[in-house]
Design a binder for these strands. Structure first.
Length: 533
RNA sequence: GGGGCGGUAGCUCAGCCGGUUAGAGCAGGGGACUCAUAAUCCCUUGGUCGUGGGUUCGAGUCCCACCCGCCCUACCA
């Protein structure tokens, strides 16, 4: 529904993940979003587009300061350790092909951030004021009057989290004139109906902005782990104001005008639904104030639920991504979450469901198809792919199905970010090829003396179908696709798998006769019995 | 408290502007086949569509109320 590909040929397809808060190790939710972005960008690379994929870490703020203190190190040491020992290694492990990794403590970021806010200050978009509000000692933060619960007396209000009375505190602060941007934002949303996706997220933002925005407090003076305001170093920037700008500082804002022109505005900001408001309201308003173009899309993904229960912070960190990859493998991991959970909605997953899909879809349908085809080419033609000399209606039906599957996958994955739908289209094609083999019964044809042409044609058709499948699945499961590509002996004639283009993937007959087909290792071995999670 | 989203077969989900006997995949049952990772292919058993009202010739599909789950409410994808 949201085919919003209005970027011109000179613009890069620039995708960002959220900038992850390095307070702790990456969990399944972070990995889910990052894998989605990786598949999206790999897909666009295989379209031949100029692609840039950014991820990174948000390293300022009071929470990190506290965590570092609790661990007896400086906040910078804490961040360095987590980034190098937990975050970057996980992305490598999951085959994330990001083009850059930005950390908000890097000078290339903090210098530009200071210039950005100085510019807003000079333009009168930021003013000094004082913030007075109900403060919860338990939360160690200000609350909104509206979220407080009534207390024992008329004047007493309780923190909704701690159910304890709040105190009224006053703090000198700088404010961004967010309230002035409500009408402009609504105008922008109306003119760009696909800006916020999915529709549920868009609704939420619209209702919020329609209620009149309040100016945003953008500085803190009670702690110093942040970017100092250039005109008042007693204050550091509110962590989100600093963090959001990673999307432009990493793209060359203020340092590399040529690169910035190529990358900005971003094509897609991937975000979790919990941080939607920052990306769909505050960030656009800040960009408007600075006179910069707005990103084309903000896409919010839903929440992972474990076995029907909400994945709370505790049990979210309870299952580490590597706990799953060590059992199922990295490719299956990448496959599973994008296949099983419709992007944009909350979705349940479980060890049992993962196991069921692995066995049924990856091992039985896909992996086994690769095995049986390679085995028969080996058995009946000594591994030399024969030519299809008897291409008839049944073969044409396979070729036609491929055209449809490729088009649907391209539209759904490449345009709509409907990963589950796009993957399903490819796997329906895999099932169709299994059915084709069952109908054609090449093992019977092989026994008849005059069936040589027929046998060759059937096996060629299946191998050619697999060739396309390898290309279509490469963005999702690069290691398995590479194994299949090697098994088909495709590289000598067709070149590297990553160089295969989506636009020509459904052109029938690309895999040349004579290719050396070998029965490589099993793509998705049957899983060992697992006693407990 | 306010705002948003969801509650459909054992499981995970489709069901757009209301219209014949509510669909898919998986699991379960039966059959065919043997090239293949005991895989594949065909057929098939499952549902008072969260609850209670209402609108309508007709409602998972619209309206109201309620129950349950989740998210946001200015530092967790």
């Amino acid at each position: 529904m949201a085919a919003l590909e209005d970027h011109t040929s000179t613009d890069a397809y620039y995708v960002t993940t959220p900038i992850y808060y390095v307070n702790d190790r990456p969990h399944l939710g972070h990995a889910y979003t990052t894998v989605a972005g990786d598949v999206l960008t790999r897909w666009h690379r295989q379209r031949g587009e100029d692609v840039w994929y950014l991820t990174g870490t948000d390293e300022h703020g009071q929470k990190i300061l506290r965590t570092a203190e609790a661990n007896g190190v400086t906040p910078q040491q804490w961040c360095d350790k987590l980034v190098e020992e937990a975050w970057k290694p996980l992305w490598e492990h999951l085959r994330i092909a990001n083009d850059d990794f930005i950390r908000t403590t890097q000078a290339r970021h903090t210098d530009r951030v200071q210039e950005f806010v100085q510019d807003l200050y000079d333009k009168g978009e930021i003013y000094q004021g004082s913030y007075t509000g109900p403060y919860c000692v338990g939360c160690e933060e200000y609350k909104l009057p509206g979220e407080l619960l009534p207390g024992a007396t008329e004047d007493e209000k309780l923190c909704p989290v701690h159910k304890r009375p709040v105190e009224w505190l006053e703090e000198e602060n700088y404010f961004f004139r967010l309230s002035a941007y409500g009408p402009k934002l609504l105008e922008f949303y109306a003119a760009n109906p696909d800006f916020i996706q999915p529709a549920s997220a868009r609704n939420e933002v619209l209702r919020f902005v329609e209620q009149d925005l309040k100016d945003l407090s953008i500085s803190r003076s009670t702690f110093d782990w942040g970017v100092p305001l250039p005109w008042d170093d007693k204050h550091v920037l509110y962590v989100w104001v600093d963090a959001l700008q990673n999307y432009i500082t990493a793209a060359g804002y203020g340092s590399d005008p040529e690169r910035f022109a190529r990358l900005w505005p971003a094509s897609v900001h991937l975000v979790g639904k919990d941080i939607l408001r920052f990306h769909a309201v505050i960030w656009p308003a800040m960009l408007m104030a600075a006179g910069l173009p707005l990103p084309r899309r903000v896409v919010a993904n839903g929440w992972l639920m474990v076995g029907g229960e909400k994945m709370s912070k505790s049990n979210l960190t309870g299952i580490a991504p590597t706990d799953l990859t060590s059992h199922f493998g990295v490719d299956a991991y990448r496959y599973y979450f994008l296949r099983a959970i419709p992007f944009g909605t909350d979705g349940s997953f479980s060890w049992e469901d993962f196991t069921a899909r692995y066995t049924s879809e990856l091992a039985n349908d896909f992996g086994n198809l690769a095995s049986r085809v390679a085995a028969m080419v080996g058995k009946y033609f000594d591994g030399a792919l024969p030519a299809a000399t008897d291409h008839g209606p049944a073969e044409q039906a396979v070729a036609d199905a491929l055209v449809r599957a490729a088009a649907e996958a391209d539209r759904k994955i490449g345009e709509e970010l409907d990963f589950a739908g796009g993957i399903a289209a490819v796997f329906e094609f895999v099932k169709l090829v299994n059915g084709y083999l069952t109908e054609q019964e090449p093992w019977k044809v092989a026994k008849s003396p005059d069936g040589r042409d027929r046998l060759a044609t059937v096996l060629y058709t299946a191998a050619e179908a697999l060739r396309a499948t390898a290309v279509l699945l490469n963005p999702l499961m690069p290691d398995s696709a590479a194994k299949l590509w090697a098994s088909l002996g495709a590289e000598p004639a067709l070149g590297a798998l990553a160089e295969q283009r989506i636009a020509t993937v459904a052109d029938w007959g690309r895999l040349p006769a004579g290719a050396t087909v070998t029965k490589g290792e099993i793509l998705f071995p049957r899983l060992e019995e697992k006693a407990a999670v």
